[in-house]
Design a protein around this nucleic acid. Sequence first.
DNA 1: AAGTGTTAAATTTTT
DNA 2: TTTAACACTT
Length: 781
Amino acid sequence: MNIEQMLSGLNPQQREAVTAPDGPLLILAGAGSGKTRVVTCRIAYLIAEKGVKPWNICAITFTNKAAGEMRDRVNKLVGFGAEAINVATFHSTCVRILRRFIDRIGYQNNFVIYDTDDSKSVVREICKDLSVNTKIYKERTILARISSAKNELVYPDQFPEWAGNDPESVQTAQVYAEYQKRLKRNNALDFDDLIGLTVKLFRVVPEVLAYYQEKFRCLLVDEYQDTNKAQFVLVSLIAHKYHNLCVVGDDDQSIYRFRGADIGNILNFEKIFPEARVIRLEQNYRSTQTILDAANAVIANNQGRKEKSLWTDNGKGGKVILKRFETASQEAYYIVEDIARQKREGNFDYKESAILYRTNAQSRSLEEQLLMENVPYTIIGGVNFYARKEIKDILAYLRTIANGQDDLSVRRIINIPKRGIGETTIARIASYASSTGTSFFDAATQAAVIPGLARGSAKILDFVYFIQKLRRDCAGKDAAGIVKMVVDRTGYVKELEAERTDEALDRIGNIDELISKAAGAAGEDPSGSAGRSVTGLAALNAFLEQVALVADIDSFSDDADRVPLMTLHSAKGLEFDNVYIAGMDEGLFPGYRSISSGDSADMEEERRLCYVGITRAKKRLTLTSAKARMLRGQTEWYRVSRFVDEIPEDLLDDNRVKSPVRRDEAGKTSASFHMLSKAQEERKREHEEFLEKPFYMRSRTKAAAQSAARPAFGVDILKGSAMMGSASLAYGVGDRVHHIKFGDGTVKEIADGKRDKQVTVEFDQYGTKKMLAGFAKLQKI
DNA sequence: AAGTGTTAAATTTTT
DNA sequence: TTTAACACTT
């Protein structure tokens, strides 16, 4: 594409950013301001106008998805030579560097990558071995502290000084040191090591650094607001020679502080690079002005930020819709109904209507409702695909085949499927391994000579031979073929099939997916020499490499017309015509932790998350809230989120009823509310007064919590609106009924549901629908 | 060693 | 509510 043409399609600020001369450049890109476009155009500009060689450009993102998108767009823009540009995530860029040079700092180049689960197992083991009291010092906490130390480039020897000498830190220091030793022994790196050890490599081996300073002469970093200290240092080191560092980000969208992201990196960019040029992109091409105004109003309540204000020349658009419900299921019902209606009326496809929420737990009630109404959906996130048990089992096999040094994987599968190898046997092998200084697998090879294993050694050797045979038989197979072989020969799927449960079927489905992912990865040689398909252990290694660094969001595509459900975090970087943010409740969003932490930085991060959510919407935004919802089995009560109050009223289409008598969504069925006896009314009032105080401010003694939920109305009144209606259904199977939206129909079935009766009606116009009696508002005709 | 049952415990967000 | 860790039984 012609560069003149390309530039003429940009607004002045964008053009300035694209054509800015060499030197540090900070692009403050508000939500929807065409950030990716600017980055890709700049890359094209550098190549075409500045004579920069494609292989001297390195563009770094956080997710594979972002990298993939950037890759596609760069390819289109640059054409010849584009494939030589490094477009990759922080982690995969580091892996590539380490695969090549990590032996310079005493590691092996064929290391494996541990995920958080693996790390946790290692920590658990260490705690056992060092007899750490995990009642006081939780494994999770220890792991979190190790991780944040690594994010700050604090290595084990520096940890005591860094952390202090309170008992917990002393304990953590020991675990950290041992953890690092074991990882090394297992030839493994965790996620944080990928960054941290690359930095170490650069610091310890100057010629390697010098090599990359030359190679990545032009460095571009996306989502810079999410970088942590280690990533900052990494980038600074590489950019130190040429200062050609272009960072793009939005401090208002920094939402990963909890895992070490340091918003200071972007806020202080100009202090660190005094010659930096700063360009603000404030024109938004995504949303309506009303949505932007709402977002601006919310984020304005944050202190530590770069002042900026988004605007658009899109129209004003409709107001932000705000709905308040009694319960989470009513909230879900409304959202699903509304999505269905938008689809019916031809306003928005399912895939254009996204449901966002703060916590994954909230997806449940929404999912139930979507199922009930037969609305297709996809949930993004939750348990990472590669964290699922069955997938981890298969992967452990693959790792064992690829590299017997990874004790964790070997031990994971040594008794899967059951081979009669128990804990004591494993412990014997482990101690033999550590006394002889070999890996667990190598020790197992010697089972015959391990003291105390006389009887069990045959089983061990069977396992060893099994693995060795698998290893030999990899020859000539591609990754998918190898996965298939493992699945077949272990009998993994067969075993699941025998279970005959839904869950087992699910797992089989996941394994099939793994195989097709492997098939998709086939032939893709990560070192670049495309075209030649790889087989055998090389193919296996390539696949394992790919698999280690993927997130769920990476595989999200909007091919199928399904309603996407995801957390606000996952939604960052995406956009939808019609967005619902569910659970706008104080205590849920913002979460009670950030309310009670006393650290305003926590609240500001929540607010940024809210800002991210609002700015996902292009045309229509709905915020919903519920008075009460179930949280781990208990009903908790919420008032409306403060973020809602931060939106000016004139931007809101607000259904919060101001009149004293509340009519809930169920309309007539909630007449039950008005049939309470005087005494009951009184108790309900008392209860509500008590509950004025949100749950997270009440004393948390068990007794108090129980008496709060039980003696007064609590749960009953919640379920009541639905249940009381169903206790006396005015219709039965075979009756003709009328529905306010679907018109007339015949009742086909009435089934007892969890909360309510589920009525199946065959409507004359709209076909068969299943609905909850309490909400359906069916009238006998 | 494997299966069963009990208890406790925990819940943000994920490259 | 759901999950994981632990103890106990067979």
